[in-house]
Amino acid sequence: MSLTLELASTIVDATLGEARARGFAPLCAVVLDPGGHALALKRDDGASISRPEIATAKAAGCLGMGFGGREIARRAQAMPGFFAAIGQVFPKGIVPVPGGVLIRDAEGILLGAVGVSGDTSDNDEIAALAGIAAAGLHGDTGA
C-alpha cells in the first residue's frame, strides 16, 4: 500500500474538520510521503502565515528521525545539543513537539507523516490522529 493523493486529501480535510468541530484555533495540516514530499497541504482561514512551514517541519522531522513527535520531544529534552545541531541537517526542519505523526498501515509499514500546527501541540496531535483514522490508517505519535 502507498499513500495516495486521495488518502492524503482525506487526512488533511478530516484533520481540519476535527479541529473545527472541537473549536480549536485555525490549523494548517500537511501530509508528506515517505521521502518527505508534500502530497496535500491546507491552511485554515485565519491560520497564521508560517503555519505551513511549521507543520512541514513537524512531519519531516518525524520522517527524518523515524519517531512520532512525542518521542522526538522526549529526546530533544534529553539531548538539547544534538537537536540544536540537527536542525541544520534537516532541509525541511524539525520541530520537536507533538503534532508530527507518522502514518502507518495495518501492518505497521511507514506510509508518510502528518504535520499539524496552529493550536497547542496536544490539540494539533488530536486533530492529526482523527485525520489519519478517517483514512483508515494508523497514527504513530511516539507515545
Rank of each mutant, 00 (worst) to 15 (best):
E107S: 14
L102V: 11
D119R: 07
A135D: 03
A134G: 07
A133Q: 11
I126S: 02
V114E: 03
V97H: 11
G115R: 05
G108A: 12
T141V: 13
V95C: 03
R104D: 01
A135I: 10
G108I: 10
L137Q: 09
I132E: 12
T141I: 12
D119K: 08
I103C: 09
E107V: 01
S117H: 12
G136A: 12
G131V: 12
A128Q: 04
G100D: 13
S121Y: 08
I126D: 12
L102M: 15
P98G: 14
L111C: 01
I109D: 12
V116H: 08
G112L: 04
V97A: 15
G115I: 04
L137C: 03
A113Y: 06
V97T: 14
L102Y: 07
V95H: 11
S121T: 13
V114A: 08
I103A: 10
G112P: 06
I103D: 07
G115Y: 11
V116E: 06
G99C: 07
E125H: 01
D105V: 07
R104W: 02
T141S: 15
L111N: 00
N123E: 04
L129A: 00
I94C: 10
G139T: 01
E125Y: 00
G100Q: 13
V95G: 00
V101I: 14
A130M: 10
G131I: 09
L102P: 11
I126T: 13
L137P: 02
I94K: 03
E125Q: 15
D105H: 04
I109E: 13
A134V: 06
V97M: 14
P98V: 07
V101K: 05
V116D: 03
I126A: 13
G118Y: 02
S121I: 01
V97D: 04
G99R: 05
I109C: 01
V97E: 15
R104Q: 14
G100S: 11
A135F: 10
E125I: 02
G99S: 11
I103S: 07
R104C: 08
I132C: 11
D122V: 14
A133L: 02
P98Y: 09
A106K: 15
T141F: 00
A130R: 15
D140M: 02
A113K: 06
